[in-house]
């Protein structure tokens, strides 16, 4: 993406000297544009398109915020690793619990009716 100007910043904030300074207003404009797309998506009433414009764009926006505002790519590599580890834990939780929540019955078990049956 061409949102980065080539101005050199001497931040002294732990990122080291000489990192490429970001045009933050331009990033914000991109984020607002993507927000508009995610709001407009459901008006087309196409399910898969709504999912893409809602959650696909959410992922893109999240990455843009993490990269350009939080400067995660300028941090030591282990920061990315611990963030990824927490996301993996979240996925493990989902994988372990979702079958019980999303199924009405399984091998040698039936969900009690008072829990509410999935459709």
């Amino acid at each position: 993406m061409s949102e980065q100007s080539q101005a050199i910043s001497e931040t002294g904030d732990g990122h080291g000297e000489g990192h490429v300074e970001t045009n933050y207003v331009k990033i914000w404009a991109w984020l607002v544009g993507l927000l508009a797309v995610s709001v407009a998506g459901p008006f087309l009433e196409i399910f898969w398109l709504t999912m893409v414009t809602a959650f696909g764009i959410a992922c893109v926006k999240a990455w843009m915020v993490a990269k350009h505002f939080m400067h995660i790519t300028l941090e030591p590599r282990f920061v990315g690793y611990i963030v990824m580890t927490s996301l993996v834990f979240m996925l493990l939780f989902f994988a372990a619990v979702a079958p019980d929540v999303m199924n009405a019955e399984g091998t040698q078990w039936v969900k009690p009716s008072w829990l509410g049956q999935p459709e």
Binding site: S86, F89, L91, F93, F94, V97, A98, E119
Partner: peptide, 18 residues
């Protein structure tokens, strides 16, 4: 991330089931 992730993951699995 773990706190909000757990909450959102719980919401997503229930939302998909209902």
């Amino acid at each position: 991330i773990v706190i909000f992730g757990g909450l959102l993951a719980s919401y997503i699995m229930h939302r998909l089931a209902h």
